[in-house]
Amino acid sequence: MTEYLKPVDRESARRYLDEHRDSAKIVAGGQSLSLLLRQGLLDPDVMIDISDVDEFSGIETGPDRVSIGAVTTYEQLESHPVSSTVETLGDSVDVIADRQVRTAGTIGGAISHADPSLDIVPPLLCLDATVRIGSVDGERTVPLEEFHDGYMAADLAQNELVEGITFDGSASDWESNYAKHSRVSGGWATVGIASRVRTTDDRDAFTDVRIAAAAVGDTAVRLSSVEDALIGEPTDRETVADAASNATADIDPLDDLSGSAEYKKHLARTLVERSINRTVDRTGGVR
């Protein structure tokens, strides 16, 4: 029989996990976990449900930091103003699964699950987000880009859990987008691309570019080859198309049910181009 624990504060959550370590699984929203349990791929002795822990809940916006608690649901993120100010987040949450999953699924659960196809990760990579990790020993932070360190693998010790994620949300001169291809709407991403750019005042050249991709390898990744090809360059469509063709340099997709590796590489180039163009369009620049 599985023991089901439901701590109500951070200290007891950390303590339970420390007691049970790798015989325990953390339940945040249960949307990925319950599939694994049902398929018999996981059979933990202890489940620690952190959804009632107040310290892990909600979205805080400070002057320069946005902090999202681990058990914040997609739905809560969707209805929060940050989803409008940082459009790549809103775009991404809009295309995640269905309303039922968005109502229960959590940001912390997704990040911990580390599936490379999850739509929420590329936008957070473009925001240079930092993962807040807790244990009985206290808190440490790791850049999200380093946190996912292999296929469905995360930089977490046996007594550590994700407590939240933080990014700089102050800059209003960024525009962003998330473009996704999936077999059916709300389905797993065949490929997902987030882009976030800043342009010169007259909007005709890129000053900062961040591009990240889901479902193209062991982990979601930043596409630095595309980023490097655009910084300082004009925002016209031809330049964007040329840069997008570099997308395959940073990815290593596999053949699976959602498509062949070759098709995913092609989609990555196409979606990078589309996502950047949409982002540039959002800057209101004349092209």
Binding site: Q39, D98, V184, S185, G186, G187, W188, L257
Partner: peptide, 14 residues
Amino acid sequence: NANLADYPVISPKE
């Protein structure tokens, strides 16, 4: 693909 995550079923969007 004997599950509803991998087996495509369409919604009003399609």
